[in-house]
Amino acid sequence: MAKEVKPTRKNLMAIEDRIELSERGHDTLEKKRDGLIMEFMDILDQAQEVRENVDDQYQRAQRAINMARAMEGDVAVRGAASALKEHPEITSESKNIMGVVVPQIESSKVQKDLDERGYGVLGTSARIDEAAEAYEDLLETIILAAEVETAMKKMLEEIEKTKRRVNALEFKLLPDLYSSQEYIEQKLEEQEREEIFRMKKIKAKKEEEEDADHLTTDEEEETEEPLTADD
């Protein structure tokens, strides 16, 4: 790139402006990256906690449904599962963390009372109720996990993007600009030196010419003088 710029003072000023802007941008992006990583660390702790809860509850729910299957038979459990009338719904709103839009998921109709589930109370046993309840708890935690993990994914994407920008500025754009600046400065200095040298040469030549002129005029005067003396 350094060889592509024309070594003019105007270009030098433009490059200096770009360097200033890029350095400022680099600092800001670096701060943004650090801030995002700090926010991410907070979410990571939360996510690990939620993840552990999800796994615990999944195991508990599995135990409950296995028990229900063993006691009631697979058909009864599936029958009850097909009879559900209320379905859990989620609505997501967004929250802004340092320019990253992360969702806030609200859930409704996850936890249901016994009579809201839709399968008959008489035809089924408490084992199925327990399994349904365990899965309802699990769903609540899954929704929380989804919220936290989406936030993590989005923040990671943003961190990666910011990091790429910081690195591009630090290792590509700024070094290129610095080398262009140096190239132009050196070229300009060289031109200045050439100019001074040229001036000196011209001055010397002019002086030489002037000296030569003086000499010739002196000689002329000298040769003219006797003539005037003759008059």
Binding site: A61, Q62, I65, V77, R78, A80, A81, S82, L84, E86, H87, P88, E89, I90, T91, S92, S108, K109, V110, K112, R117, I128, A131, A132, A134, Y135, E136, L138, L139, I142, I143
Partner: peptide
């Protein structure tokens, strides 16, 4: 906009979630 929860897996895996009301 309200959305739902979807479950993919073997019938054993999905049955439990259907008990909690998941229909997708």
């Amino acid at each position: 906009m309200s959305q739902e929860i979807g479950v993919i897996g073997s019938p054993d895996f999905t049955t439990g979630f259907r008990l909690a009301g998941v229909r997708r």
